[in-house]
């Protein structure tokens, strides 16, 4: 079995043509498609990462470190097996998920054909 690291969080099993998790090595998704399609996906409330807003005492405003929900949401992608965070996307609500990586698997196989098994 030959696993090629692609990012910090995902690798490819070239024999099986599968994306795998770099942490637990579980197979996630066919390698000819973007790996995000094999992840568990969750819209994370931004305040859970950036903290609660601070109300201004003298008026109704509040000071926030979290993105405004009408402008941007935080979408997290997890390994379905071990729960590792594979990638995070910052998107306006409803904006199509970014298909981050689509690799030329045939080329990749050719490239690694010579190296040891």
């Amino acid at each position: 079995m030959k696993r090629i690291p692609i990012t910090e969080t995902v690798e490819i099993d070239l024999d099986k043509e599968m994306w795998c998790c770099s942490q637990c090595h579980a197979e996630i998704h066919p390698a000819r498609e973007p790996y995000v399609k094999g992840c568990l996906v969750y819209e994370r409330p931004a305040a859970e990462i950036y903290g609660p807003a601070i109300p201004v005492k003298s008026n109704s405003a509040s000071i926030s470190y979290a993105p405004q929900p009408d402008f941007m949401r935080v979408v997290e992608f997890y390994c379905p097996e071990c729960g590792s965070l594979m990638t995070v996307q910052y998107l306006p609500p409803g904006h199509p998920i970014t298909l981050e990586i689509e690799l030329d698997i045939d080329k990749l196989k050719k490239k690694h054909a010579g190296s040891s098994k």
Binding site: T7, E8, T9, I49, Y50, I63, S64, Y65, A66, P67, Q68, F71, M72, V74, S84, L85, M86, T87, V88, Q89, Y90
Partner: peptide, 19 residues
């Protein structure tokens, strides 16, 4: 000020909105 303008990589987070 209303978005995360600099994102993270490979499971890392982006920066907060800037007041």
């Amino acid at each position: 000020s209303l978005i995360t303008l600099t994102q993270g990589l490979f499971g890392g987070y982006g920066v907060p909105a800037l007041p």
